[in-house]
Computed example of a mutant assay.
Amino acid sequence: MGILDRFKSNKAAQDKAKNMSDAAEQKANEKTGNKYESQVDSGQRKLHERLGMDEERPDQP
C-alpha cells in the first residue's frame, strides 16, 4: 500500500488537506486580486481529483 493509498483511506488527513488547499486558494486569490481566480480554482480541482478528494464522489467508508 503506497502513501497515496493510505491518504485516500484516511478521512481526517483528507479533511486537513482540503482545509489547507482552501486556505492556499484564498491566499493566492487575495495576493493576485482575484486576477487568476479561475486558474487557481482549476488547479485546486485537479489536485483534489489526483488525491481522491473530488467533491462529486460520495464519502468512502
Rank of each mutant, 00 (worst) to 15 (best):
M20Y: 03
Q39K: 14
E56W: 05
E56D: 15
N34C: 02
Q60L: 14
F7G: 10
D54A: 12
K31S: 14
Q39M: 07
R57L: 06
I3L: 02
E49A: 11
R57T: 12
E49N: 09
A23E: 05
Q14N: 13
D41Q: 13
E49D: 06
A13K: 12
A12D: 06
R6T: 06
R45T: 03
K11R: 14
K46M: 12
K16M: 09
P58E: 10
N10M: 09
A24D: 00
V40Y: 01
L4N: 11
E37L: 06
S21V: 00
M53S: 04
E25H: 01
K27A: 07
A17E: 10
K31C: 12
D15V: 08
E30K: 02
R50E: 04
P61K: 01
E49I: 02
S21R: 14
E55N: 15
D41C: 03
I3K: 07
T32K: 03
M20N: 13
G43D: 03
A28T: 13
D41V: 11
E25A: 02
R50D: 04
A13F: 05
Q14Y: 08
N29S: 00
A28R: 01
G43C: 11
G33I: 07
N19E: 13
I3S: 06
A13P: 01
E30C: 02
G2Q: 03
A24M: 02
E56T: 12
T32I: 06
Q44S: 12
R45N: 09
G33A: 01
T32Q: 04
S9E: 10
N19W: 07
P58C: 11
E55Y: 13
M20L: 11
L51C: 04
Q44E: 10
E49V: 01
G33D: 01
S38C: 09
K31G: 07
K46I: 01
K27N: 03
D54T: 01
E56L: 06
A13N: 08
S38R: 15
D41Y: 07
Q39I: 00
M53Q: 04
L4Y: 04
G33E: 00
G33M: 01
E25N: 00
